[in-house]
């Protein structure tokens, strides 16, 4: 049973991944819609970042995590190196949790 779950999940996930890549060649998309593909990807990534920053299991994630992400975002907006953005975000959240902020 367990192996069936893993295989089904693996096959379905790979199917989603490969379908987009292969469809890109097959679909005769008009130019205006091809231009929307990267915009759509940006919307998905922004939605992932926002939901991951703010929510946990359908509710609010608490203050420590969004505060850390906000620090990272401010650094990124000031063109700080990517590594610094990631480390500062994690460090802020970790520090806040250490101080007892959920």
């Amino acid at each position: 049973m367990l192996i069936a779950v893993i295989l089904a999940l693996a096959a379905g996930t790979y199917g989603f991944r490969v379908a987009g890549v292969l469809l890109r060649d097959r679909l005769e998309l008009p130019e205006w819609s091809r231009q929307l593909l990267p915009v759509g990807a940006a919307a998905l990534l922004a939605a992932l970042a926002a939901t991951a920053a703010l929510t946990e299991a359908g509710g609010f994630a608490g203050y420590a995590r969004p505060a850390g992400v906000l620090v990272g975002l401010l650094l990124a907006a000031r063109r700080a190196p990517f590594v610094l953005v990631v480390v500062a975000a994690a460090g802020t959240t970790a520090l806040l949790r250490l101080l007892g902020v959920a």
């Binding site: 922004a46 970042a49 991951a52 850390g68 975002l73 990124a76 480390v87 975000a89």
Partner: peptide, 25 residues
């Protein structure tokens, strides 16, 4: 405890940020 749950959204947002200069995006 390491704040890693903040690392991923911050990283994604940092990678995304330059594209947001385009108004439509």
């Amino acid at each position: 405890a390491l704040g890693l749950d903040a690392a991923f959204p911050a990283g994604l947002a940092a990678l995304l940020l330059p594209s947001l200069r385009d108004r439509e995006t």
